[in-house]
């Protein structure tokens, strides 16, 4: 119970998110109407993605400092989960945009920025797969991961704020807090962020353990011969 309490917490929070997110009262706003419930499923994805990318970068730095493969496992798997969240975030965002802005893709700076970010991380996966030596793969992957993250931050947090955007909080549009982040939304939104992030961590840790077992098994096979 001690070590997996957070998994239980994740399940509870996500059950609460789905239940409360679909059934609770939400503020009536023009254009958004009921679609504001997507807030719990779309915006939270990006929070989860950023948290996991930070974790991945921290482990990349740790790998470069120590050269131990266990840190690299964490870095790659957290990036994988972050990419999954990013894809889900962009898909949910497109669906939401279809119903509120009228188009799946409206050339919004944040949409473009996140698409570029995904391209960057897909490139990371291809780069890793193009290298065969495990240590070299880990080292070069870590270097590129840190470089990508350094570009990701201005791309997502700085550039969209300089231009007009359809997203709230950019280019003259008021932020969420200004007009509609009332207490009922917050009551679901914050737990939803935590819940989704925990789910991401859960996915990554399972895959990290799988990866380590695989390596152990391979080592055994090699040692037998």
């Amino acid at each position: 119970m001690k070590s997996y309490w957070w998994k239980v917490l994740a399940i509870l929070l996500l059950a609460y998110t789905v239940f409360a997110g679909l059934l609770f009262e939400v503020p009536r706003l023009p254009i958004l109407n009921e679609s504001i419930r997507a807030l719990y499923f779309h915006v939270t994805m990006w929070f989860g993605m950023v948290v996991m990318l930070v974790v991945a970068v921290v482990y990349s730095v740790k790998y470069l400092r120590s050269g131990e493969l266990k840190h690299d496992d964490m870095a790659i798997e957290f990036t994988n989960a972050a990419i999954l969240f990013g894809v889900l975030g962009i898909v949910t965002g497109m669906l939401w945009a279809k119903f509120t802005w009228g188009e799946y893709w409206s050339g919004d700076p944040k949409q473009n920025g996140s698409a570029i970010a995904l391209l960057m991380y897909f490139a990371y996966l291809i780069l890793r797969n193009s290298l065969t030596d495990v240590h070299q793969r880990a080292k070069i992957g870590a270097v590129y991961n840190i470089l990508a993250f350094a570009v990701y931050i201005p791309l997502i947090f700085v550039l969209p704020r300089l231009t007009d955007s359809l997203h709230p909080g950019n280019g003259g549009n008021p932020g969420f807090n200004a007009y509609d982040m009332d207490s009922t939304l917050r009551m679901v939104f914050y737990p939803a962020i935590i819940g989704w992030t925990l789910l991401g961590v859960w996915i990554s840790t399972i895959r990290v353990r799988f990866r380590r077992l695989e390596r152990k098994y391979e080592d055994q096979l090699i040692n037998q011969i």
């Binding site: 570029i116 970010a117 391209l119 960057m120 897909f122 490139a123 291809i126 780069l127 193009s130 290298l131 070299q136 070069i140 590129y144 470089l147 990508a148 570009v151 201005p154 791309l155 550039l159």
Partner: peptide, 20 residues
């Protein structure tokens, strides 16, 4: 160049990074 230096890799790695 560490990754065998093919042109595709150079392009896909640099384009997204250079876009900002």
């Amino acid at each position: 160049s560490k990754a065998g230096n093919n042109g595709t890799l150079m392009a896909i790695l640099s384009f997204p990074v250079i876009i900002p």
